[in-house]
Amino acid sequence: MKIKQIINELALEVIVPPRGDYEVQSGYTGDLLSQVVARADRDFIWITIQNHLNVIAVACLLNLAGVILAEGIEPIPEAVEKAREEGVCLLSSPEGSFELGGKLYQLFNVEVESCYT
């Protein structure tokens, strides 16, 4: 699934746009950074309510496809600046992690099914 399709389908606010319309492999939801570091992987999109510079560091270290800040969280300006600098796609949504994760999961499943038909 392409990043721009996810942005459109989930009506996400784009804070730092993706560098190109690349493929997103999967997703991960979580606010414990060590858990995210251990479980998320390259080209995953990450849903979180954490709002500090380390979110960007984690996204950059793991080569994540992007970060979705849930619950209408407005990122601190330093994080936005850092995301721009490191080329991390930063998105936000008024919806909660549960709703966003559910919708995203649905999107990926539809895509897999359509490959079979």
């Binding site: 950074l33 858990q35 995210v36 979180t48 380390n54």
Partner: peptide, 15 residues
Amino acid sequence: RMGFGAGMGLPNIKR
């Protein structure tokens, strides 16, 4: 509160 201190750091390193 910032999402650290879950006691996973050293186990993560070990893995």
